[in-house]
Write a protein that binds this DNA or RNA. Structure first.
Lengths: 167, 167
DNA sequence: TTGAATGCAAAGGATTTGCAGAGGC
DNA sequence: GCCTCTGCAAATCCTTTGCATTCAA
């Protein structure tokens, strides 16, 4: 699978659903109602999410379109194997984001808002390659999270503090 | 606490044990045999470790110097709060490394060997600051892991492959 | 028809917690 | 002596798994 690091180039000819279909065929796996349902929900928006969030968005038990928790976990793993999603850990739980057809990026994590913010920087990718080369290390991928506070986080915080001061 | 990102400068006047002692005092907490024992084991060597590894190094149950699992977890959290350790997640479990008195660094993760390798690069820290500034983001810390394969990993792999080919 | 996928319940692994007794200061 | 800390067992959280049934091809 083509997961060598590159500079934000994105080549897409197939939709995620089509690409997953290929993946299934190749492995003798089947396209089911549940997998279709999850493809729909997961690739409708470009936001990262955790399993809990995803399950809350899906129809409840005994509702049409419901997918059981184990199947959600199983299918997300398949999406990762198929190169559709990337997975990382934040505060001990898995977070997923689009990989296929979505430009490579990194994240700020605003500790005041508990929020992930994406950014893209080619210089960074180049520097990482350079550092790796210096150490004879062959890069496959990387994960960078910059912790701190965004402008919004700092402003909300100030507002909250003022409010507290008034009490 | 002084956890603003800086360029590998390290100012240390106290040993980790002394600094932890201060931390305890400030909070009306006590220096116990178990905390002493863990300080000893954790700061004896500069290697990252996970809880399982640490516990294996400690005396077994009913041996002098033994520390129970919950206390290990509790104490590691305290070390993190005290700024002595930094914690991150790898494959769903917590990994700890020295923070206090130890130069800031990042990691390669060799996927062939399952091994973390440290590196230090000031250019990277500067670039992160620059990117953050561009986004009005105030940096508190960061975590970068570069996944791939080290020279050793690639060589061991080749050796293994050859061996397999012979079968 | 046939093997793969699902849902359920239950297991698993890592970490935390309630509580009674032990132990710093 | 007081209040924190410890160890035990049990709970929690997230995720995976075994198995009988359902279902895609």
């Amino acid at each position: 699978m083509d997961d060598q690091e590159s500079l934000g180039k994105v080549e897409v000819s197939l939709t995620p659903a089509q690409r997953f279909e290929e993946f299934l065929q190749l492995r003798g796996m089947r396209m089911t109602e549940q997998r279709r349902q999850l493809l729909d929900h997961v690739f409708r928006r470009h936001e990262h999410f955790d399993v809990e969030e995803l399950i809350l968005q899906l129809p409840r038990r005994n509702q049409p379109g419901h997918v059981s928790r184990p199947t959600v976990y199983r299918t997300l793993n398949e999406f990762v194997d198929a190169g559709l999603l990337r997975r990382f850990e934040l505060d001990g739980r898995a977070v997923y984001e689009h990989d296929y057809g979505y430009p490579a990026h990194d994240h700020f994590y605003c500790e005041k808002e508990g929020k992930l913010i994406e950014f893209q920087n080619d210089e960074l990718v180049e520097l990482i390659q350079k550092i790796a080369a210096q150490h004879d290390f062959q890069v496959h991928s990387h994960r960078l999270i910059i912790y701190g506070s965004s402008k919004e986080g700092r402003e909300n915080n100030r507002r909250k503090k003022r409010r507290q001061d008034m009490v």
